[in-house]
Design a protein around this nucleic acid. Sequence first.
DNA 1: TCGTATACCTAGGTCTACTATGCACATATC
DNA 2: GATATGTGCATAGTAGACCTAGGTATACGA
Lengths: 112, 112
Amino acid sequence: MDSRFLSGSVEMLILQIAIEGDTYGYAITQEAQRRSGGYFALKEGSLYPALHRMERRGLLESFWEAKETGRRRKFYRITAEGAKSLEAQRESWQAFVAGVNGVLGLESRGLA
Amino acid sequence: MDSRFLSGSVEMLILQIAIEGDTYGYAITQEAQRRSGGYFALKEGSLYPALHRMERRGLLESFWEAKETGRRRKFYRITAEGAKSLEAQRESWQAFVAGVNGVLGLESRGLA
DNA sequence: TCGTATACCTAGGTCTACTATGCACATATC
DNA sequence: GATATGTGCATAGTAGACCTAGGTATACGA
């Protein structure tokens, strides 16, 4: 993975995964990796701070899995505000890609 | 412009513009803006430090325009190493876009 | 027992983009 | 002549976001 470009995308990726159903930290890293064809290797030192600040900002809410025994998992659920933010970020992302591709002389067909 | 996504792209954009001919700071901001359809508004506080560190790393070399009168301009010329870096960054960029789009469920057709 | 996978967390360092500001010349307008 | 706008380079200080590195703990197979 090229972390040079990553900055600013992490939260969008987390929101996207969260909007498809409640999830937790470790699962997010696995899912991001799987769906990007192995490209994203989200580090814990990036992931957990991101989750915490997103919760502080009201984009996510969390709850501990109610389990008597074994491994504990902290689940995250996207809020209405989080969903709104995701929609805005998706649009912003596509504008950004179009902008960069414009400078690079690449076409952005198919990116709607 | 959404500067959230910008991180790491600035140098690639500068290299791309520089590889098409010697250029200078102010011209780079104008050209980036023009070619991105007005999207990129590169700030001086980002641009000049970027140019300086790229020169330190050997991606660019600079020379002052030899002019008796008037405005002075510091021109930048891409080096062989800079060209190599640009090629690598272009490939990396396209892999990154494909990765993000994969997570977002967007297609990347036409991005070759 | 030991290694690996799962699962959470934080401290500290580094990098990079921004705002704000300063300096300086050119040109158009009033 | 004065003023505003555009061109042109530069840095100091601030804030944000990703990383490395380390810590804690459970589950399970060899």
